[in-house]
Design a protein around this nucleic acid. Structure first.
Lengths: 126, 126, 126, 126
DNA sequence: GTGGTCTAGACCACG
DNA sequence: GTGGTCTAGACCACA
């Protein structure tokens, strides 16, 4: 799986990395039971520091996306059942802000829903 | 218009402020031509530093949401025609990350679209 | 509040620190709303690295013991309502191991309960 | 006796193993004079490395739980008279940390003692 | 060889 | 002045 880091971006590297790994899981490129590259390996591959990769891995662990096994490194977990209430309200707040901006910039409702639809299809179609 | 700042959040105060003002505009609570409270005033009202309010106002100006007039302060602009390409691709990337997470947490496509729909209605129904 | 770090111990420094801070909260030495020393300050005081203190603080934040406020640093939170199920089963497992060892080393049930009782009194008696 | 290893736990495998063997002894499932399975055997049974089992056995030996005989392997010892002072102060420190956490999470004194009581009963009732 | 821990020093965002 | 991020390099525990 290809990871692309934008060093110019003001989103922290470890967040960028975490997001892309989650997208990889969503797309099915990273399957349950599969193991991620070692922190040192991945760090070298994408040209960032080991500790930065480590931080991303630990966040993924916290969120239940991977388990860290002393023998095999980070292993992708089974998908996570039901979305919690906390998560849902976070999601709504986040969407509310994004949509407010999109709406004021002239993005139409149907256009927005189309974009979401297409992204979903990308993840579901495995 | 009521502004609610969460001091314990890890999103910067000025971002929280900016977002809420944009939501206010989207909802029609802040209408074109209307002027925002003075920096000093708003800072005092919500108990944050003047510089922080100033930063939010300047960002809004950069994004074309308000014009800053030395005498009248920040004035809400008319809505901004067509969304630019840059903005659209930013938006897609952001949504892609959010949806990846939502999808892995078990949020269904229709559920997600329903949430977006409802938020849009809130803004359109002015 | 006095913090004592044992550099010889094989429990990580940040865990030692975290534990002592929790004990401080339990004892009422650190009260709700009070703010902890800055990471740099505390690091210097106890002669360890800033990042190590930071790690402890972040764990405390994760567990809900403190909130990290950009303005005032780490602030002690209100006490946390009901113990969750997960925590209770963790606790039982931990105790089961400790008690197995104590039992085989000849510690009597009543003696053990007395020790627990006394420690509890120390925390409750505020 | 059934051994259950959690490969995703962050407590080292050899510690998990050691603890469970001590619990077996406490429960009376492993009686004095009885010999533990061979290192090789046990390693294979639970799917871990021989060295790991070896490490656990050696720790048990150090703590006086077993004697290691070249021919018969590890043999469970008689129970160990009086708890030493060192052990008792270690135990108190450990309990102090655990109870601080439990207390702050809202576990009541009587509830805690009840849990300890029940675990003790499990070990005593042989 | 793997991650975990600790140290150190630097720069930046925030307020 | 505060924490957040990133880098770098070292040592250790684990398996």
């Amino acid at each position: 799986m290809l990871i692309k880091i934008d060093f110019e971006s003001d989103t922290p590297l470890y967040i960028q990395l975490k997001r892309q790994l989650i997208q990889g899981i969503a797309r099915g490129q990273l399957k349950q039971g599969e193991s991620l590259p070692s922190v040192r390996q991945l760090a070298e591959d994408i040209g960032i520091n080991m500790h930065t990769v480590n931080k991303a891995y630990n966040l993924l662990k916290q969120d239940g996306y991977v388990s860290i096994d002393r023998r095999k490194g980070a292993i992708v977990n089974r998908s996570i059942g039901e979305p919690g209430e906390d998560y849902m309200s976070e999601l709504k707040e986040e969407l509310s802000a994004i949509i407010a901006e999109a709406y004021t910039k002239g993005v139409k409702r149907e256009e927005f829903k189309k974009i979401c639809h297409d992204i979903f299809i990308e993840y579901e179609g495995e």
